[in-house]
Design a binder for these strands. Structure first.
Length: 582
RNA sequence: GGAGCGGUAGUUCAGCCCGGUCAGAACGCCGGCCUGUCAAGCCGGAGGUCGCGGGUUCAAAUCCCGUCCGCUCCGCCA
């Protein structure tokens, strides 16, 4: 108190009363009120009079207690103020395109174009500081656990499988390209072969796919890998890291070990492998009840091997208008329509009721535990379609009708994934996780056996029964991490490649270095990667990861700040041996 | 590749259905007044290619077609 201090920052607001001027001076730490009186300091008053919002100034003055009755409890510094002796203007500012205070929202494009102003906003600033703390806690955690942080290259090799690569032309090698890594997957496995039995990295990854609220073309992973471990060891590290972050940053004690549910259970009950379990509306299985129904739509689905499931939206009393809206929603997902039954006090209302027998009605109502006010929403289609439609519908209803318990942190593992699934479009098996995932020990013979089978349906059946030693971590209905025990034996890796339709020549060309490495004493190993952006966003209760990334891209992959991507000079193209066609 | 929502003043929005006193509000900005405010207050003022292009019409922010941009979702994202 009463000591002379020097401050610097931005003019957040100015309140001019004629004779006395108040300036809210803002820096990274917060806001403090500077006061200038004409009577006692005409020189500083003169300067203050000309200040405008966002001018960058220095203030030399004395801190004092505010006069009684003028304190502002809304400010951390609201009980003191700085009496300016001298005010220096370091820089002026034109009127801002949008205000730093956050009362009015601003469109995403404007925010990103003037990101340096957006980042002056309290919430954005806090998000980035929070993210910084996540980095620090993560690094400390892994260091204390004996992990070594090692950087892996960004200029690397394009590999098949997975997402589309961003590619970088090579000047020194005409016609050749580097690819930006989709993840450090292969490098961290090779680090295991190298004997760094505990590795971690906070690292950028790049995937050239369409964007979403939770997807950016470049994003950050917390990546780690360990040797001589089982699933339990890898999951234990993940649980302790997440628990540490929650405790230190949010003061929340998460119960460990986290719950586990199987992939099959997740799909059957929620229609997705990353369910939001903070509300009900679970999927109910009805195929058996309707397998001989007179209702043609249902019966033909069952006959074609499809399934019938429903959601009972309990007590919703949906109106026709609401049901129409829901119908539109499921149609946008590819449903042909929506069958529904409204349960009223003494009757059922539904356009499809007349097709059902008494027995079917009885069994149905029993199965869905129908009560007056309920509305039953059906989906009958191929299994994948039913899961997609009802899984998305469930989420849609949960959000729209505010069923989600936002106070809950629901974190759990999804395990027992199938190793591969059949891809209709590509007409081959594809990895659910990635091609380096270890199958369950007892399933390895099945893979070898499957290679011999000619009949496709039979082959599918066998392959689908093979489970992966993989695990996904789900938080509030979002996948925040995933990993697996990897294949460390060359013979198993070769079988997997073969089943995936990656021929020996291609395997050698694309992954030869990995197969080679597996020959020279590769230890058993496994790991996991967290989506750091998603984790931070969820912890902060934000819907979009753009709000935890300093300079994100728009949905079309554009950076409005720099206007990237952009054309380059013909000279640059020439050096890179690139010709642009069209 | 597909579906939905949006684009009007510096910002956030209303107006659009039903074409014609519909170029509007708030905040911000500019000028003035004001000695205890803190989203200060009061008085006055300036500010628009209604995203862009085409069409319908006597007349288009408003209706139609196309297109661009932003957002959300499906596909895609091992």
């Amino acid at each position: 108190m009463d000591k002379e201090i020097k401050l610097a920052g931005w003019v957040h607001r100015k309140r001019h009363h004629g004779g006395v001027i108040f300036i809210d001076l803002r820096d990274r730490e917060g806001i403090v009120q500077v006061v200038v009186e004409e009577k006692t300091n005409p020189e500083a008053y003169e300067v203050a009079d000309r200040l405008k919002p966002e001018y960058v100034i220095g203030v030399i003055g004395k801190v004092r207690k505010r006069p009684e009755g003028t304190e502002n409890p809304k400010l951390k510094t609201g009980y003191v103020e700085v009496v300016a002796d001298k005010i220096l203007v370091f820089n002026t500012s034109e009127p801002l395109p949008f205000p730093v205070e956050e009362e009015t929202p601003v469109s995403e494009e404007t925010k990103l174009k003037y990101r340096y102003i957006d980042l002056r906003r309290e919430s954005m600033k806090n998000n980035l500081i929070f993210r910084h703390k996540v980095y620090q806690i993560t690094r400390n955690f892994f260091t204390n656990e004996g992990f070594i942080e090692i950087e892996t290259p960004f200029l690397t090799k394009s590999t098949p499988e997975g997402a589309r690569d961003f590619i970088v032309p090579s000047r020194l090698h005409p016609g050749k390209f580097y690819a930006l890594p989709q993840s450090p997957q292969l490098f961290k496995q090779i680090l295991m072969v190298a004997g760094f039995d505990k590795y971690f990295q906070i690292v950028k990854c790049f995937r050239d796919e369409d964007l979403r609220a939770d997807r950016q073309p470049e994003f950050t992973q917390i990546d780690y890998e360990m040797s001589f471990v089982s699933e339990e060891d890898v999951m234990d590290v993940a649980e302790r890291l997440v628990a540490t972050l929650f405790k230190e940053l949010l003061g929340i004690e998460l119960k460990t070990p986290f719950e586990r549910i199987s992939y099959t259970e997740a799909m059957e009950r929620y229609g997705t492998d990353k369910p939001d379990r903070r509300f009900g509306l679970e999927l109910l299985e009805l195929t058996e009840i309707f397998k001989n129904t007179a209702f043609k739509v249902f019966r033909s689905v069952v006959e074609a091997g499809g399934i019938i499931k429903a959601i009972n939206f309990k007590g919703s009393n949906l109106s026709r208008k609401e049901i129409d809206e829901i119908t539109k929603f499921v149609q946008s997902l590819g449903a042909k329509g929506l069958a529904w039954i409204k349960v009223e006090k003494d009757k059922l209302t539904s356009p499809i009721l007349k097709f059902f027998s008494e027995e079917e009605k009885q069994k149905l109502l029993e199965k869905v535990k129908a009560e007056p006010g309920d509305v039953i929403l059906f989906s009958a289609d191929k299994k994948e379609m039913v899961y997609k439609i009802l899984g998305n519908l469930r989420l849609h209803l949960g959000k729209k009708y505010n069923l989600i318990d936002e106070s809950r942190w629901d974190i759990f593992w999804v395990v027992d994934f199938p190793l591969m699934e059949w891809d209709e479009e590509e007409n081959r098996f594809v990895s659910l996780h990635h091609p380096f995932t270890m199958p369950r020990e007892e399933d390895i013979p099945k893979l070898k056996q499957a290679l011999e089978i000619e009949d496709l349906e039979e082959k599918k059946k066998l392959v689908h029964s093979v489970k992966a030693r993989a695990y996904d971590l789900v938080l509030n209905g979002e996948e925040i991490g995933g990993g697996s025990i990897r294949i460390h034996r060359r013979d198993i890796q070769e079988v997997v490649f073969k089943l995936l339709g990656i021929g020996e020549v291609e395997a050698q060309e694309k992954f030869g270095f990995l197969l080679e490495a597996l020959k020279y004493g590769a230890p058993p190993h496994g790991g996991l990667a967290f989506g750091l952006d998603r984790l931070v966003a969820i912890m902060l209760g934000l819907d979009s990861i753009r709000d935890v990334i300093a300079f994100p891209k728009t949905q079309r992959g554009i950076c409005p700040l720099t206007n990237a991507p952009d054309y380059v000079e013909p000279k640059q193209l020439k050096e890179l041996h690139i010709k642009v066609v069209e």
